[in-house]
Every structure is written in structure tokens, then in C-alpha cells.
Amino acid sequence: MSVLPPPLDLRRMLTIVRKELLVLLSNRTSRFLIIVPPLLQIVVFGWAATMEVRNVDVAVLSRDSGLWSREILHRLEGAPTFRSVVHLEGAEAVRPVLDARKALFVLVFDEEFSRNVERAQPAEVQVILDGRRSNAAQIAASYLSQIVEDVARTTPAGLAARTAREGAANGVFRLDVRTRCWFNPNLEFQWFFLPNLIGMLSLMLGLVVTGLSVAREREVGTFDQLLVSPATPTEIALAKLVPGCLVGLAHGTIFLLITVFGFGVPFNGSVALLYAAMLVFSLAAGGVGLMVSSLSSTQQQAFLGAFTVGVPCILISGAVTPVMNMPVFLQHASQLNPLRHFTTLCQGVFLKDITLASALLNLGKIGLISVAAVSVAVWMFRRRT
């Protein structure tokens, strides 16, 4: 004969939730840790974290005194990407400049550069990049290529080629290609990264707040007292999830206001949809945090466990690097990561007013992960008690 579990008592659960909130907010150190660091992170990341390359220092070794090398240097000095252009006296100065990181790359013009340009002959420019900063060097080299191409169009050979193309295309259909970026026309990195940061910080808060609660009870010796209370282990476990969800929603609101009004990131979607996603996502993060807490005996173990789980979740979520660039097995594994689906939904809500079908698909995936995470967390909590 099977015995049905006793029904959940909402009043007992609310009493435990109230106790958890009082413990969390009555301690000055706890208040500081859940309020100040997340706010500092979103502000610092919003200003400092960028994949754009700016304030680049460049060194130039020019053996040519002609018009076209000077034109390239003039445009290089006028570009906002490049901060300073250092002129070198000889080839022996190239290595020390790169070794000391005084320049991201060195641009070298030979004696025949401008003369070859005037003769419509191949003219070469050597670019020596600092491979220790590979990503920045590649982006800066791309900027430099655009400048050189623009100058090439104004040379006699470039003008003649353009005239020939226009003459050949006179009276013939011409294909005019124009590039337009949807959802982020100016390719602002903050527009992409700050919505992702809401999910990343909410995940870490949910893991840490929920993960420390049970470990704290064990460490200070009040866990046994909690077990002899009228509340069942299931009620205790579910009540432990609520403070983390409330903290996640509160911080999500603050992050939303800072992102929209502080950094000017557009918000084109539904506020209700975003809050529904934050609530379900907070439950998933709290469930994973409760799993970590159930396996930890001290707060230090719970804190380290939260970062052990949280950092890989962030790395394979697509919030930092594209999922499509990862190995196939990681792309499949990321489907079990709630942050991946929350990131997709959050970017859609902010930048492109995501369709209801796509929003419900991602919200459904987060919901399934939340149910699984909470169920496993409650089961693990009951086993430990």
C-alpha cells in the first residue's frame, strides 16, 4: 500500500522564507555582498568590457616621402580607432617597440611606394602585428585595410578602374550592394553584451544566495533545529528557493533600469515577458544552487561549488562567445543550460521584439530545465536529511 506524501503547507513555507530573508538582510556583510558587487559589475562591465578595438598605438617606419604614404598616415592619424602614431627612425627600432607593447602593429613603407602608385604598379605595405594580442591585432589590421582600400580608390589607377567599370556598365544593369545591420545598426558592443550580463549576474546570484543558505544552516548548527520543526523536508527545500528568486528579480529590475536608462540600450519587447523569463530562470538557478548546497558542508564549499558550476554555464551559453563556434558536443550540451535560452530571449526582448512563438519556445525550455533542476534539488535535499 503506497503512502501519499503530506500536502505542502504554504504557511509553514512562508515562515521559513521570512526567516531566510531576515537572516540574509539583517547581516551587514550579506547585504553588502548581494547589493554592491553586482551593481559594480554591471557598471564596470558596461564601460570596460568590449570587443571593439580603440585607443590603438601604431608605429610607422616610412622610407617613402611621397604623397600616397603621407595620405595613408594622415587618415590613420585622423581615425578615432588609433590614438597615436609613432615614427621610427630605422628597422632596428621595430622589435623594441613591439616587445615593449608600445604599438599594436608597425606599418612599413618602402622607398618606391608612392612612385609605384603613380605608375599604377603593385605597391606593397608591410604590416607587422603583435601576435600576443591576436584578436585586437586582427581587428586593427581590418581597420587599416579599409583605410588603404579607401586611399587606393583615389589613386590614378583606382580612378581609371572606376571610370572603366562605369563606362562598361553604362546602359547595362548594375548590382548595387548596400549593407545594413538589423537590430544593432552601429554594431554597438554594449547593446549585445549588457542584456547578456543580466542573465550572467542573475545566474551567479541565484547560485550563491541559494547555495549558501543550507550550508550556512549546517555550519552554524541550526539545520537540525530546522528539521525538527513542523515543516517537511520538501517544504524546507522549496522555501529555500524563494529568497534567491526574489533577490534575482530585484537585481534583474535594477540591471534593466541601468541598461536602458544608464547605457541607452533600446528595449523593444514586452516587460511582462522579460519578468516571466527572469522568474523561471531564477527558479532554475536556485534549483542548481540548492543541488550544490545539498552536497556542501560549509559555506566555503558552497561558494566554490557555485563558481564551479556557474563559470562553465556562462562560457557555453553564447553570452560571451557564439555557440556555433564551439565543438558539436558542447553545442548539444548547452541545450541543458538555462542561461543559453535566457540569453536568446533577453537579446530578443531588448533588440528586436522577439516573436511570441520564439519567446514561448525559449521560455518553455527554461521552464523544463527549472522543473528538472528543482525536482532533483528537492530529491537531493531529502536524501541528505
Rank of each mutant, 00 (worst) to 15 (best):
Q121F: 13
V209Q: 01
A284S: 10
F307N: 10
V60W: 02
G305S: 11
V85Q: 08
M13L: 01
R70F: 01
T155F: 00
L24R: 04
A141L: 15
L361C: 02
R218Q: 10
F267D: 01
S293R: 07
L194S: 02
A136R: 14
I42S: 05
L315G: 06
V94E: 08
T50A: 13
I254P: 00
L356R: 08
S282N: 05
G367F: 10
L246G: 03
S114T: 11
N196M: 02
P266M: 09
G287D: 04
A377N: 07
L107Q: 02
F189P: 07
A168E: 14
V374W: 04
L22S: 00
F45T: 00
F303G: 12
A160V: 03
M324V: 11
A359I: 01
F109G: 03
V371K: 03
M380Q: 15
D9Q: 07
A169H: 05
F189K: 09
D176V: 11
I128E: 05
L33R: 05
L205N: 02
I34G: 03
A372F: 10
N27A: 13
I198P: 04
R70I: 00
G367V: 01
Y275S: 04
L76A: 08
Q299V: 01
Q146K: 11
P96Q: 08
V94A: 02
A237L: 07
S317C: 03
L273R: 13
A93K: 07
V328D: 14
E92G: 11
A237W: 12
L257G: 01
I128P: 05
A141D: 15
L4E: 09
E235L: 01
A152R: 13
W379C: 08
R115I: 07
K102T: 10
A91Y: 00
V292R: 00
G310M: 05
V3M: 07
G131W: 13
S134H: 12
R70W: 00
L67H: 06
D110P: 05
I34T: 10
S375D: 01
D64K: 02
N135H: 13
L360V: 10
A79Q: 13
S282M: 07
L339K: 03
R31T: 15
N325I: 12
L368H: 06
G221C: 09
S26A: 14
L76I: 08
L241N: 05
P185L: 04
G305Y: 08
T81K: 11
T232R: 15
V376C: 06
L295E: 09
R95Q: 10
S296T: 12
N27F: 08
M324Y: 05
V17S: 09
C181H: 14
T355V: 09
L201N: 04
P312I: 06
S270F: 03
A79N: 14
L21W: 06
R133E: 15
V3L: 11
L361K: 02
S293M: 08
L187E: 07
L368F: 14
A372N: 04
F350Y: 09
E118C: 06
V17A: 02
M51G: 15
A373N: 06
Q335M: 11
